[in-house]
Design a protein around this nucleic acid. Sequence first.
DNA 1: CTTGCTGCAAACAGTTTGCAGAACT
DNA 2: AGTTCTGCAAACTGTTTGCAGCAAG
Lengths: 144, 144
Amino acid sequence: MILEKKKMFNDFAAAKGLRSTRQRDIILDIFLSTHQHISVEDLYFKVKSSNPGVGHATVYRTLKLFVECGLAREVLFYDGQTRYEHVVAGEHHDHLVCTNCNSIVEFENETIEMLQNEIAARHGFQIKGHKLEIYGLCSSCRRQ
Amino acid sequence: MILEKKKMFNDFAAAKGLRSTRQRDIILDIFLSTHQHISVEDLYFKVKSSNPGVGHATVYRTLKLFVECGLAREVLFYDGQTRYEHVVAGEHHDHLVCTNCNSIVEFENETIEMLQNEIAARHGFQIKGHKLEIYGLCSSCRRQ
DNA sequence: CTTGCTGCAAACAGTTTGCAGAACT
DNA sequence: AGTTCTGCAAACTGTTTGCAGCAAG
């Protein structure tokens, strides 16, 4: 799992012609060792504690790379700090259902998935799955 | 609808001993005339255009009051600007369902509701309702 | 040796705050 | 008159950027 992710980053770096640097390795290691939605600041301090020389900007820049290669995802809360969470494979989509013609449009929304995890955690639930269906009139039925 | 909201704010202001000022009236009027998620900056410019004297800080301060009295809600996107949207009455809750003991916990999440509206809008859907159910093990069933 | 990467500090953008004067009650 | 509110500018916070030196290829 962690090795997979390292490979993911290495492949991405190779494909983009990025160099392999000590700092990126350290930041990736520490990011992979964290749990959901760590703030840049927190990650920066973790990195600093084991590796004082690393700068603020490098952490910012490296996290953007992780997002770009699909390892991480930006998450916003209401405290003005950007957080990053791990992208986990196997996420699925939900549905928009037209109550007139019964057509179904699929969609995915990572933020909703994430919020669901939060809600479940808050209530002590161990989540197994979910179903989200939005009902309404699709664009063509609206016009009629 | 607009009058209701003005009343809402006036009642809140009265209850809190806030003064009624020209600026707050203007900002409320303009906010009520806007659509979903306006940024502070945009609202500020709208206010300025009809009323040049009003300052930046006042718009920020007044929007916080709207949130406090339940008229507005903060919304975050990924562009670093805080937006505010209207709170609409009649929002409901969703469910956490335990697949073992079938107990149901109700919850509400405004952000999910809002995201659903966005998704529907993006697909040209006129939303009528939705159902969100999260399935899993409740905290007591997990322990067994 | 060439080019990309880093660390630093300065710059930036959005938001908040302190304060003197204006406005509400 | 007393106190809250406003507008301004300065301060703050989180993030980005320019640049000289460092390091990977």
